[in-house]
Computed example of a mutant assay.
Amino acid sequence: MSTSHADQLKQFLECSIEAKQALLKDQEQMAAFDQAMQAIIDCYRQGGRLYIAGNGGSAADAQHLAAELVCRFGKDRPALPAEAFTVDSSILTAISNDYGYDYIFSRQVEGKMKPGDLFLAITTSGNSPNILRALEQCRKMGLTSILLSGHQGGKAAALADHLILAKGTETSTIQEQHIVIIHALCHTLEHTLFG
């Protein structure tokens, strides 16, 4: 017996809703979001910049977040300085060619970030080697880092200062929650910093 295409959509929607409800009820993750948000607010109030990185769909999420901060999310206000480490093809290809793909983010942390800046890593698995190296570089430089991940945060969980974990086992479900978290982050920043 075949199912309709709409049945597939319903299944995805049910999984998405179930994971989001689980996240909503997780007080530990709500507290983690609070702490990470305070770190971002403090960064901006002290004149710092937010740098963001991820691979694949998470790279798109990094760029999405940077765009919302530099342009606007829900209200007109001054631009917030943010940059995704995934957008400069010359830097990405040079580092990949000369050092290897595992170094594409850590070299940018080293070359672009200064004390008071903040690094936000997005990875559904928490095991991307280039994210791990970037978090290690943040530690070496004394820079605050936030990890937005899924499952248990993988190897990256032990390297980040702040950890926010989405619920669910499917990459797509985790990515959907990451977008909700990113939008909540933007909304919170706008209302906290600009009233």
Rank of each mutant, 00 (worst) to 15 (best):
Y51I: 05
K10I: 11
T144F: 07
G195Y: 12
F33H: 01
E83K: 07
K167T: 06
K112Q: 15
H64D: 13
G100T: 09
E110M: 03
Q63Y: 11
G54W: 06
L69K: 01
I95G: 06
S90R: 05
A166H: 01
G56M: 03
R72D: 05
T86C: 05
L23G: 10
Q152D: 15
H151L: 13
E110I: 01
Y99M: 12
Y44S: 15
S145K: 02
L23A: 10
R133S: 07
A134M: 04
Q21W: 02
Y101S: 03
I164P: 00
A160S: 09
K20Q: 12
D34S: 08
I146G: 00
G100E: 07
D34F: 03
R49M: 09
P129A: 11
A184D: 01
H64I: 11
I104T: 02
A31G: 10
K167V: 04
A121E: 12
Y44K: 15
Q35Y: 01
G57E: 06
L159G: 09
H162F: 15
V87N: 02
T171H: 04
Q27W: 05
G154Y: 09
F12H: 13
G153Y: 09
S149E: 00
D102M: 12
I95F: 08
S128F: 00
T171Y: 13
L9G: 00
E190K: 08
Q11E: 11
G126A: 06
I41C: 10
C71T: 15
T144D: 12
Q152T: 15
M141L: 14
A53R: 00
Q38C: 03
T188P: 04
L189E: 04
V109I: 15
F194D: 02
G168K: 04
I40H: 01
I91Q: 10
I182E: 01
A60E: 11
I179E: 05
Y99T: 07
K140F: 09
K167S: 10
L118C: 04
C43H: 05
Q137K: 15
N127A: 12
M1N: 05
G154P: 08
C15S: 15
I174F: 01
N55V: 13
L147K: 07
V180G: 00
A59G: 11
A32E: 07
M141K: 12
A22D: 07
D98L: 14
M30I: 12
D161K: 11
L147G: 04
Y51H: 14
T188G: 01
I164R: 01
T169A: 15
L23H: 13
N97P: 10
Q8D: 06
